[in-house]
Design a protein around this nucleic acid. Structure first.
Lengths: 206, 206
DNA sequence: TAGATTGTTAATCGATTAACAATC
DNA sequence: TAGATTGTTAATCGATTAACAATC
């Protein structure tokens, strides 16, 4: 049985994986822990310590083999294969995300959109199938949707999240201005609050 | 001289401040560290420890006075007063953010938008002033813009960031798919990569 | 007063950094 | 070989948790 990876390490490995992908596209074949650290603002010690959770790593030119390393990271974090995603709340932010191109090439296929306004559902211009919000549970369940991205008003967030979870969603990326929570185990929720992000930047300037 | 607040504490205090605001709007007047902890997924020990950086706190009904506490947090983190913000990259995500309503009532006034496409600048429908990207340095400097939100293609991100910093911007919230960095002290950059956020949710499910 | 909560100090826990032998 | 880098163990550092006296 492989040891559990600490959360900060999981976070960094995700970032590093994204970075390795870009380096690969640039034609790079290998990289050292020191250079990887510089590019991602992680100390080389931490880079190597994080990699120690991955088992044996192939070495190329005395450095890490970029393709091999990225494959190992993605296998270990179970980031392989395509996941299905829906977007709830098709206001400005929601519809921008609904049409966000980069998800598809990175393992996330957006297949459904929902909005509480029938009028919005009928008039929105998009290639994705959109439905009224009262159909969330049924449709999410029917298509076995894995993740949801939430961009609804704060007042609706918690209730919508519950219905998504009822429908079988396992992870929620929440852009609504209200922290959502769940008692249920095995559900991961990530809250992103734009005002809060600016506040945090501002506070760190001190 | 007040002691420096650790970064995790700054992050939590920002979140707590947002929460206190909502509780205030709901008419609540006081709250205990235990309840606050439950609402924000922070242990009551940590809540109280965090508050110990704030100096003496007024107590109401044996609990924290919500309005007073929030004021103290915002004063201590220097979150008072309005800051000026620009948005660079007016694609779907960028223009959604350009018109995001909630910033204004929370101390952030979006006053400028930029895009590298003159055509986009001329055709976009918005009440905010928008200009071609080559005017960034001049206009950001002229209006003393404090923060920028970046939603440009990955390939342009680093260069645009540099020009924003040259123009005098102190903080950047970066939604482009490329980590941006700066050697300059006194600049805070927060990178948010949507694919990375979904990857992180997915990896935590294991 | 009795019960509850704060504010702070001490103990624990976990993550990062440093060091270095092994490897290429 | 000599130089550089990995992989891992030990040392350090910092954050969270626990405990409890002081306060209301």
């Amino acid at each position: 049985m492989k040891s559990k990876i600490p959360r900060p390490t999981v976070c960094r490995l995700c970032m590093v994986s994204r970075l390795l992908e870009k380096l690969h596209l640039q034609g790079r074949e290998s990289i050292s822990s020191t250079e990887l650290g510089k590019l991602s603002d992680i100390s080389p010690y931490t880079v190597r310590k994080d990699f120690s959770f991955l088992g044996d790593l192939k070495v190329l030119n005395r450095c890490y083999d970029i393709v091999f390393l990225n494959n190992i990271i993605r296998r270990r974090l179970q980031l392989e294969g395509e996941k299905l995603v829906c977007v709830v709340g098709l206001g400005r932010i929601g519809s921008a995300i609904l049409n966000y191109d980069s998800f598809l090439s990175h393992g996330y296929k957006i297949v459904l959109g929902f909005d509480s306004s029938i009028n919005r559902v009928e008039t929105i211009k998009t290639d994705i199938s959109v439905y009224p919000a009262y159909e969330i549970e049924e449709r999410v369940h029917f298509l076995s949707i894995d993740f949801a991205i939430l961009a609804v008003p704060a007042s609706a967030a918690q209730e919508v999240a519950q219905r998504l979870i009822n429908g079988g969603v396992k992870g929620i990326l929440n852009f609504s201005q209200s922290i959502i929570k769940t008692e249920v185990d095995g559900i991961v929720i990530q809250n992103i609050d734009l005002v809060n992000e600016l506040d945090f930047i501002r506070a760190r300037l001190n």
